[in-house]
Structure formats: C-alpha cells, structure tokens
Amino acid sequence: MSRRRLALVAGSGALVPRALAAAREAGWEVRVLTLHPRADLAHEDPFQIKVSRPDQVLREIRKFNATHVCAVGGMHMSDRERETLADFTGDDDKAKAKGDAKLSQLGSVLLKMLGIPFIGVHEIVTDLLAPEGQFGALELDSELAAIARFAFNSARRAGELDLGQALVVSGARIIATEDIAGTDTLLARCRDFRARGLVGDGAARMVLAKVSKPGQPLHVDLPAVGPDTVTGAVEAGIAAIAVEAGRTLLIEREKLVARADAAGIALVGFKAEDA
C-alpha cells in the first residue's frame, strides 16, 4: 500500500497544530507550507508560501510527492496577491470579482494543475462539523429561534454577493455584516454600536449567524467558530449564535460550548434547506 503524503497549507488559528497532530496520528506523512509565518510551526521547517510565486508552491508540493493537499486555518490575501493568483491560473478577466468564493475556485484550479485532490480538514480531525439543532445547554425560545433563522437566511443572501460569512441581526433588523477584517472585527463593531446605544437597549435580541457561501466547496475556507468567537459575542451582547450544520467548523468544541453555556448564549445549527 502506497504511503499517504499530505501537503498541509497552514493559515492562522488554533486548528492548524491540531490538524497536523491528527494527520500524523492517522499515518500521514506531512509537509507543512505556511501562508504566514507561525512561530509554533518553526520546528517543522515549513515552506514559506509566496503568493507572488505560485509556481514555487506547486514545485514544492511536487517535490514532496504529495498525494493530497489540505488547507487549514484562516487564509488572508491582499488584492494584489489575489490578482497574481488569478493571472497564474489563466483567469485574466479583471472585471470578475476576486472575493473569497473566487479564491476557493482558483485554489481548486491550482490543484488540478498538480493532478492531486484537496481534502477537508474535517476528514482529518473528526467531530469538527457543527450538528443540526441545539448543541449548547441553553434552549432557544420561539422568538429567539425565529430571529436566529432570520439571521441565518440573511447571511446566506449576503454570501450570494461574496461578502463575509457572518452577519449580526437585532430582532428583524440586520445591523452589520462581516467584511475582509473578519468575524472578530464584526463583533467589535457591534460592541461599539451597543456602547453607543444604537442596539441592545430594547426588546430585540441580537444573533450572530455564520454560514458557508453558496456553492462553496467543503474542502476549503469553511466558516468556523471557536471560544474567541464566544468571547467577542459576549462583549457585543449576542444572545445566540446560529451556524450552518454540517458546513461549519467548531474549533475547540468543548471549550466553545462551555464558554457559551456560562455566558447564557444559545448555540444552534441549521441546514440551509430547512432554515
């Protein structure tokens, strides 16, 4: 039986070292490639990716004789880097959007050039994907459940425009959507709105929703929530977090749920077709 060899493209976040350990425990031989320098991976002698030279990345993966590629963690690229990647893959239409959905497609094109498959991190680390229904201790009452569904469906619509994966509502009002700065910054803005008395002083409760974008593949850039998300949600006055069941990564799940339970924040997973 041929040995499985994994090229692990590491972004930011706590999931990366966990995925690395799980892959080795499962018998994978792993070569780490980092999009941004990480002190905690220095002992791996990682290949530092230069988005300006995607040919070097492909050469390194071929040199390792990788059988599979997995991208783990947050992947942040500037407009210039996105344009460079698009040019390399032959997508030279400057009028086309170069958002995160397009970035996922370009990554798939690169893998086709190599002739090896992507796998999702959930195929390496088990019990990562959010379940359907309540997965914390706090139950949603009928009103909060309705707000959560509204937030979830609104986030799906925002995804069609290739905006961020997250959105916050206050009752039946959308108050903020995620942008290129990410979910933590979204929650910080909502915290500021609350401090200024713009939200949180009436009966309408606030819900954070996080979903994948329509057509987004399972193997790259799935939405993720973790303990830090809950911390930001507490500061922003969030009453519930709604995620997409089967398509959202739960980072440090036990700590995430415990922190939400302690803060009185409800956690719920919806299927896109049911919400």
Rank of each mutant, 00 (worst) to 15 (best):
A148C: 14
L85R: 07
Q105E: 06
F135I: 01
A21C: 08
A195E: 03
A22S: 10
G237Q: 08
T84D: 08
F135L: 00
T177M: 07
Q48F: 15
P227Q: 02
R82T: 12
H76S: 13
K112S: 14
G200M: 09
L267A: 10
L128T: 06
C70H: 02
T34M: 13
H219Y: 15
L198M: 08
N65Q: 15
T84N: 07
F118R: 00
D91P: 05
A266E: 06
K98T: 09
R196N: 10
A188K: 10
F135S: 00
L249I: 14
Q48E: 15
L218Y: 13
S78D: 14
A262W: 11
L187V: 09
T231Q: 11
T126F: 07
P223A: 03
E60N: 06
P17W: 01
E123C: 04
A130K: 12
E44L: 02
R80A: 13
T185Q: 10
T67N: 01
R156K: 11
G107F: 13
E83M: 06
F118H: 01
R3L: 13
K98Y: 02
L41P: 13
L106W: 01
Q134Y: 04
P131Q: 00
G182C: 08
K102Q: 09
L111F: 14
S104N: 13
P217V: 04
G115L: 12
A240I: 11
F88G: 07
L33W: 04
H36P: 01
D127H: 10
T89V: 15
K102G: 04
D91T: 04
R189A: 10
P214K: 00
H219T: 02
Q48S: 12
A26E: 09
T248S: 05
D261I: 07
Q105R: 14
H36Y: 15
I251W: 03
Q216S: 12
R18K: 12
T229Y: 06
T67M: 04
I124F: 07
A233N: 05
L140Y: 11
G99W: 13
A7I: 07
A23L: 06
F64S: 03
V32C: 13
D87Y: 05
I147G: 01
A158T: 08
